[in-house]
């Protein structure tokens, strides 16, 4: 973009050697950051500077860099995935910041997301929740019928797809003041409960996933709605309500 310019920024980054050692905020100065660069490119630039001065680079998660894999995280200036809504950290650009800005970068915080190193957290608790029930059992005997042969109302399909947009990044947990994972689990429960293939196992699914969520040490939801605002994929609170309904149905 022709309006791109270079800015100088101050960074306050959480550094932690490994899971066991105590971490702390470390200050860095980074000059000549192009406003056209992405936030992760800015961190790459910082790491280059650190490596050149024989320092340990900052570890951070990233993969696709196009907002679809759910790998990048980061709590930037008090918000998961930074100041923009509806985007992941990799989709955030430095044009959102001004020359001289101080930017806090911290890992997603949750008892169930232990820090591995610096800004990298272990989100395998989400995987375990998913494994507890976030699937549809299909007989793979070789004559599996085509999913499209089962009629699905358009409205249900849309809602299911909207829930399925969840990339499991953990921004909901990170932004929730209670460290609750209910938006994630709500989305995963809804995604299946809305479709005929998923309805069959709906009761055991919601019970198992909620039990696993509680066992992982996530907090209790108090409906602040922070998760919905910060979710890069716009997952709605309606999914948590649907999970509450499904859980009640399954428990009675």
């Amino acid at each position: 973009m022709s309006t791109a310019k270079n800015i100088n920024i101050n960074l306050k980054i959480w550094r932690q050697k490994n899971a066991k050692e105590k971490g702390g905020i470390v200050d860095y100065k980074l000059d000549n950051v192009s406003t056209a660069s992405s936030f992760l490119e800015m961190l790459d630039q910082l790491n280059e500077q650190l490596i050149n001065s024989k320092q340990e680079p900052v570890a951070f998660d990233h993969d696709c860099r196009e907002g679809i894999c759910g790998m990048c995280s980061l709590y930037i200036n008090g918000r998961a995935h930074g100041p923009e809504t509806g985007t992941t950290t990799c989709q955030l650009h430095m044009r959102k910041f001004k020359d001289g800005d101080t930017i806090y970068i911290e890992p997603f915080r949750s008892k169930a997301f232990p820090v591995v190193k610096d800004l990298v957290v272990d989100r395998s608790s989400f995987d375990r929740i998913q494994q507890a029930g976030g699937f549809v059992s299909v007989n793979t005997s070789g004559n599996t019928i085509d999913a499209n042969s089962i009629p699905v109302p358009k409205d249900d399909a849309d809602k299911s797809f909207m829930a399925a947009a969840c990339i499991g990044c953990g921004a909901c947990v990170a932004s929730c003041k209670n460290g609750s994972a209910m938006l994630f689990v709500g989305a995963k429960v809804s995604q299946y409960a809305l479709l005929p293939q998923g309805k069959v196992e709906a009761a055991t699914r919601v019970q198992n996933m909620v039990r696993q969520m509680d066992e992982e040490g996530f907090g209790n939801c108090t409906n602040t709605g922070a998760c919905e605002v910060e979710c890069p994929k716009g997952i709605s609170l309606e999914n948590i309500a649907r999970m509450n309904r499904e859980f009640l149905k399954a428990s009675l």
Partner: peptide, 11 residues
């Protein structure tokens, strides 16, 4: 809920 986030955010 306080226990669910043992280390808080700086910002």
């Amino acid at each position: 809920n306080a226990k669910a986030r043992p280390i808080g955010y700086a910002k």
